[in-house]
Nucleic acid binder design. Structure first.
Length: 567
RNA sequence: GCUCCUGUAACUCAGCUUGGAUAGAGUGCCAGCCUUCUAAGCUGGAAGUCGUAGGUUCAAAUCCUACCAGGAGCACCA
């Protein structure tokens, strides 16, 4: 629709189509028109008053079947589109509505979720998981071929710590009963021991762990593990198996899937090989104690191998990136992690570039803010965690209660999971979010259940109309004199493809979440003021309701939220 | 100390990329609406120094500079 106006204007003014597109806006209220073209830019070019230009243009522009009326309001040229023409287009849409062909089969690897083995998934892990899943869906919908990788933190100092704790303090019965809880207890106990070692004047970043007795024990354990010590290896495997079971439960509940699940440990050797390569080429340097680091022009230096020659996070990341490129030849790879890792990823990308891997400029880091609870950040070290599984369970329980209370139908799991996903996805990723039970368990207003409810309401109309179909035989619809609610619903629906495109370009699902809410709102206003069944406009309105159903369903699909026919 | 992010109604947030017409939602609060397709809904109301101060511009929440406040990074952690 917008395109028609752009094309029309392009014939009469000396601006490129792209320039016109940027200028066109939507007036503050619909009485002023559907689209507006401000003449300020032209006035500068032609050195005439903007009002005069608007007037001149209004007279020059021809009438078309799509455009009903053009009004001038000061320097603005306001277009009133032919709503029937608009409506005609919308009710024709099918289930592919909004799908794009931006990607044209391009491969895009998305690395997301990536919880650490040995630690439970807590509310802080939810953003990477949900955001990554949504980005997978958005890319798929936009015509890309997305590959989701869950890159588990199955190795690293935290594993060393956990094995030390496991050998010292394991309670076997507790492990049998609730492995996740027992592993958490062990980890927290270790960290508190480590913390008591900290001496005054060591508050500076990292200082406290440099010569810490307990941290050193963990480092030794990690070394042992890398060397293939059998006993250590066995404990490690046991921890991994417990953790994976826990993770899988959560992923199943959330309906999140991956194409590949690999541990970081798999890439230690490849990473080390690259590090030694770098050393040979003179890209990396060696400390007297054997630690290897790389320096940059504009970033702080990065250690890429510990002095005891064990691999660290970045070592494995170097290896993993190279192996992935070899395997997938991706056009782009997105890392979805906490924004605090931004420096780490910038260093990683530069290292790969220095090593001569040109694919390094296909790598992107999507950072997001932290999840806070009250004034605290989730910290596994201190045992300050709200388990993701508990959050999901509690929300599903609440959904069950609501269903009972309202005496309606619906799937509590779908409602609960939808509520959680939506409450996180609706915020711009860059911002921190405050987790509060009050907000997450609120199912009214700007919430997941509100969106699902709108869909169920629409479905209900369709169901009823099918039952009473025998009575009303008027199958051929006339597009009536449209009400303002119908018009705004139609307009909202028509925005969907642009919204998908914007979300894909900006790697930001919150754009879709916000749109979904506006769409549902628009539908509920329509629902309230326009009767469908039995009305003269029934046939047309049924089509409109169906167009809405398709659009909201697709929109929620992109957020990983399912819909129900009844709730 | 250096670098990055955030600051819009009591609370949670859209809008800022690409400057434009009276700054929008939701929650909460107040007042209404269920013998009509699901009230997890709808209608109306009160509520704002767009962090502060400058600058650019015909026009600034939006761009630039400085400052203030909050968060984060600058580990041989991940």
């Amino acid at each position: 629709m917008k395109q028609i106006i752009i094309d029309l204007l392009a014939k009469y003014i000396k601006l490129k189509k792209e320039e016109i597109e940027k200028l066109i806006e939507i007036p503050p209220n619909s009485e002023m028109g559907d689209y507006a073209f401000p003449c300020f830019v032209l006035s500068k070019k032609e050195k005439k008053a903007p009002n005069a230009i608007a007037e001149h243009l209004a007279n020059k522009l021809p009438k078309t079947k799509e455009i009903e009326k053009i009004e001038i309001k000061g320097p603005y040229l306001n277009f009133f589109v032919n709503k029937r023409y608009f409506a005609e287009e919308i009710i024709k849409l099918n289930s592919n509505f909004g799908k794009l062909n931006l990607g044209k089969g391009k491969k895009i690897v998305i690395d997301f979720s990536g919880p650490n083995i040995g630690k439970p998934m807590h509310i802080g892990h939810i953003r990477s998981t949900i955001l990554g899943d949504s980005l997978m869906r958005i890319h798929n919908f936009s015509g890309y071929n997305p590959i989701g990788i869950n890159y588990l933190g199955d190795i690293g100092l935290h594993i060393g710590k956990l094995i030390v704790a496991y050998e010292l303090w394991l309670d076997k019965d507790a492990l049998k009963k609730d492995p996740i809880a027992e592993l958490l207890r062990l980890y927290v106990k270790f960290c508190s021991k480590e913390k008591t070692e900290v001496q005054e004047g060591q508050e500076e970043a990292g200082e406290e762990f440099k010569n810490n007795e307990w941290t050193n024990k963990a480092r030794e354990k990690l070394k042992l593990l890398e060397l293939g010590d059998k006993k250590t290896h066995k404990i490690w495997q046991e921890i991994i198996s417990h953790s994976k079971k826990g993770f899988d439960r959560v992923y199943t509940m959330m309906n999140v899937n991956f194409n590949e699940t690999t541990g970081q440990s798999l890439f230690s050797i490849k990473g080390k090989t690259e590090v030694f390569n770098a050393l040979k080429k003179g890209i990396a340097k060696r400390e007297s104690d054997g630690a290897i680091y790389i320096e940059f022009d504009n970033l702080p230096k990065k250690y890429v191998l510990r002095s005891n020659s064990t691999a660290s996070y970045i070592t494995q990341d170097i290896g993993a990136a190279i192996e992935r490129y070899k395997k997938y030849k991706f056009d782009k790879m997105i890392y979805v992690t906490d924004f605090r890792q931004e420096l780490h990823f910038n260093q990683l990308f530069q290292i790969l570039k220095k090593l001569g891997y040109d694919f390094s400029d296909k790598l992107v880091h999507v950072g997001f803010g932290t999840v806070n609870f009250g004034k605290e950040i989730m910290a596994t070290r201190q045992g300050k965690v709200i388990l993701l599984e508990d959050v999901l369970k509690k929300t599903i329980d609440k959904s069950q209660q609501e269903i009972k209370k309202r005496k309606t139908k619906g799937n509590a799991e779908i409602i609960g999971v939808g509520a959680i996903k939506y409450s996180f996805l609706k915020n711009d990723p860059v911002k921190d979010v405050n987790f509060s039970w009050e907000h997450s368990l609120n199912f009214e207003g700007d919430s997941g259940p509100y969106l699902q409810y709108s869909y169920a309401r629409a479905s209900s109309i369709i169901r009823k109309s099918e039952k009473s179909k025998l009575k009303s035989k008027s199958k051929n619809y006339n597009i009536p004199e449209l009400t303002s609610q119908e018009i705004s619903l139609i307009k909202k629906i028509s925005e969907f493809p642009e919204v998908v495109e914007k979300a894909e370009k900006q790697l930001n699902p919150s754009i879709i979440a916000n749109y979904s809410f506006q769409l549902a709102q628009s539908f509920n206003e329509f629902y309230h003021s326009c009767k469908v069944i039995g009305d003269d406009c029934e046939a047309f309105r049924l089509k409109l309701v169906n167009a809405f159903r398709t659009t909201i369903k697709n929109s929620l699909y992109l957020l990983g939220i399912e819909v129900m026919e009844e709730m």
